[in-house]
């Protein structure tokens, strides 16, 4: 039941009271009580109390929105900066772009090679397993669900930054298979994590 004063108030400020922020504010039982008391009594103390709780409520919302935006835009800004940096600074003086691609080819050749020379074995020993990169223990325990091939593909994509075409060459497989296995691996992990929940 609304009192006469409350009705008057709602009539006068109809548009304002329909604003989402007002509705949300009054959803809390405490705020509703403070609001009713202030409208009905109109004494200084309860009005001050209403003002103060609304101010805090509003500020909280502004802060959430501000921090979320900060996170969102600094992520975008960071990536932009990084791209620019790579564009400007590579090739580094003295190193031509050609030699960088050559270097990448060398690594590719090494990964493709079937010869068992000692450098390659050492190189392989130094290679870290993809599980070493996953900090989330929960996800890490799910990695054993994947086949060796899938693990290898994830490793080449996420650690070495190769694209599908290059990985197809390394693993001597078709691009489609690589892409399929990549997606299948991610799907498997996703489902395994969902099920646990």
């Amino acid at each position: 039941m609304m009192t006469v004063r409350e009705e008057e108030f709602f009539k006068k400020y109809d548009a304002m009271m329909k604003q989402p922020i007002m509705k949300e504010f009054l959803k809390s039982g405490d705020n509703q009580r403070i609001f009713n008391k202030a409208i009905n009594d109109m004494d200084k103390e309860s009005i001050e109390q209403l003002n103060a709780s609304f101010r805090r409520y509003y500020k909280n919302i502004i802060l959430i929105s501000y921090i979320s935006k900060t996170i969102h835009f600094s992520a975008i800004e960071f990536d932009k900066k990084l791209r620019n940096y790579y564009k400007k600074n590579l090739p580094i003086p003295g190193v031509t772009e050609k030699s960088i691609t050559q270097e990448k080819h060398l690594l590719m050749d090494l990964l493709m090679s079937t010869d068992e020379d000692t450098t390659f074995i050492n190189f392989q020993l130094k290679q870290k397993n993809i599980s070493d990169y996953i900090a989330n223990a929960h996800l890490n325990s799910k990695m054993k669900l994947l086949s060796n091939k899938q693990l290898r593909i994830l490793e080449l994509i996420y650690i070495h930054n190769f694209n599908n075409k290059q990985i197809a060459k390394i693993l001597n497989d078709s691009e489609q298979t690589i892409s399929y296995n990549h997606q299948a691996a991610l799907k498997k992990l996703r489902n395994a994590c969902k099920q646990e929940k």
Partner: peptide, 24 residues
């Protein structure tokens, strides 16, 4: 970087003034 950004903004965030009920 994001943590830094939020840290930098902390004191600014504290100073933000929002309207009270009747002002609003």
């Amino acid at each position: 970087e994001i943590s830094m950004k939020i840290l930098e903004k902390l004191s600014y965030l504290q100073e933000i003034r929002t309207p009270d009920f009747f002002e609003f």
